[in-house]
Nucleic acid binder design. Sequence first.
DNA 1: ATGGCGCGCGCAGCGCGA
Length: 256
Amino acid sequence: MKIGTWNVNSLRVRLPHVLRWLETNQPDVLALQETKTEDRDFPVGEFERAGYHAVFAGQPTYNGVALLSREPPEVIATALPDFEDVQKRVLLARYGDLAVLDLYVPNGQSVDSDKYRYKLDWLAQLDLWAAQLLRDFPQLVMLGDFNIAPEDRDVHDPVAWQDQVLVSGPERTAFRRLLDRGLRDSFRLHTDGGGHYSWWDYRAAAFRRNQGLRIDHILLSPALAARSAATVIDREPRGWERPSDHTPVTAELSGL
DNA sequence: ATGGCGCGCGCAGCGCGA
């Protein structure tokens, strides 16, 4: 099976891109972030016509997550447990034995901001939840926009980015804690080198110059990591007209 | 050189993203 993640930076604007990408790539599950769409405006019918079920947790203007799938979903959660938050950043669904957690981790803005503190608190709560989820769901995929470049090889200019938000030590420690729980970064199961990014700034021709960060991730529980056949960053949609600043990442799991 | 682009909201220009 194929399962992907894509921060679309407004589903209203990017719906044609998502439909085109679904048609070409035929994933079994696609997790979206930054839909920026209220639930009553979610384009359910468009995805039904494309052969996909859709579940979503949205709000006006900001944030918003969704899961598209061939199989009908069972929604388990739409928020972090025990964490007061009006921001829609979490969607957990299951498809039979497979559990999929779609995440839009807070950006953090800058390391000296209140939003950074919120990001670290949010990640601490995610870590607690991850321990429970790994017990409850042996077949767990945790994927989305983590807003963390885990290592310097995931950063085009580590010196310029040092100690900046998305790259700072506390954020990387939070990401590392998830791996210490037993989750595996599926991209790194198959590719060691640098220069592979999932986001490029709209400004300064960053995509053309491949000045990006790898911040969109697919984490796999141990049972799924054993089935990981490939993880691919698809740069193509970043080159389309009026693109999202993120591009899709897809994991292939064998025997599911 | 801290801007640079693109989004929502709403009709100007600001907050936000990363």
